[in-house]
Nucleic acid binder design. Sequence first.
DNA 1: CATTTGTTTCTGTTTTGACTGAAATGTCTG
DNA 2: CAGACATTTCAGTCAAAACAGAAACAAATG
Lengths: 177, 177
Amino acid sequence: MKLNPVAQRFILHWGEMGSKWGVNRTVSQIHALLYLFGKPMPADEITETLEVARSNVSTSLKELQNWNLIHVVHVMGDRRDHFATSVDVWELFRTVVRERKEREFDPTIGVLKDCLTNDDLSKEDAAAQQRIKETLALMEALSTWGEQMLRLEPTTLMNVMKLGAKIQGLLAPKKEG
Amino acid sequence: MKLNPVAQRFILHWGEMGSKWGVNRTVSQIHALLYLFGKPMPADEITETLEVARSNVSTSLKELQNWNLIHVVHVMGDRRDHFATSVDVWELFRTVVRERKEREFDPTIGVLKDCLTNDDLSKEDAAAQQRIKETLALMEALSTWGEQMLRLEPTTLMNVMKLGAKIQGLLAPKKEG
DNA sequence: CATTTGTTTCTGTTTTGACTGAAATGTCTG
DNA sequence: CAGACATTTCAGTCAAAACAGAAACAAATG
């Protein structure tokens, strides 16, 4: 499969962005390719299209499966596995957020809690303890809020975002202006 | 300066998390240290505390300055630069979000726009074009929404988050349940 | 203006992780 | 079950980034 210039641009950029966020370049490139292509694709074709080693594709596909971003599809009369990703960008977004939250956010909250229950700190520095408390409070707030937002329908979520800062007015309807 | 076990745990964990999000380990460790310590600190003391090379500290401090996360402070009777970070976790959070948005989000939005104005795609694959459009729409929505949220007072933002999914009820007050 | 003190830049080393190609494993078909 | 086909694992290579130590630079002091 030959990529047109726009597809190339998109995929290469996505790969670079992935790197900046701690995602392997090949992994993000493959995902971008499957998203853009929109149809199930066998590993070999990915290999040829992106011009990377077959084994590299295999590893990356497994990684993408661990992230719940792609799934295997079988095609009649073809023994090979075909791989596809959701073409719903909202679903992808939610999956990525959910996974990162579970992998990195939640464990960090755990560590912060441990830090606070440990006596070593409380004896030494009350201000530092306070700061850890505030960090934990922020992260927990983000965490539960994130969970709730992820449960909303994409359209609802979009409306929430469109509301934007106007939400202030709805919060404490004591004053009007 | 000797770190107590809790401080060590916090700083080491922060360093690991940074790595997973594309931030140099030393950079995030230094920031965690300054945050926990809460007072301006000369580079040498950071060097000793974290047991890394002086030059490494120098580079990382510069990086943190580029991120607007630390600033230089001078102490009476001391010629050395002292470095401090905000101890307000909300301010730190906002700074990081703002910086990442500017560095990675905005440029990506630019690339997506370019992709859509380029004719090569429109001729080839309408579905792919549509997907890029949706991706752009999502990112732009997140972007403008993010900007607005960042402008809110921390306490307001906290209230917004506490409201959580209940915001649905405020959105389309046609039905009640 | 030499010396002390502090910071940055530079060069080479080390480490880490991505990647390749080959071998091994697994699975289907005649 | 032989061989064809498909995927994964593994061991080694390669490249990028982090890091250390030395050298260079800058600024203040007596």
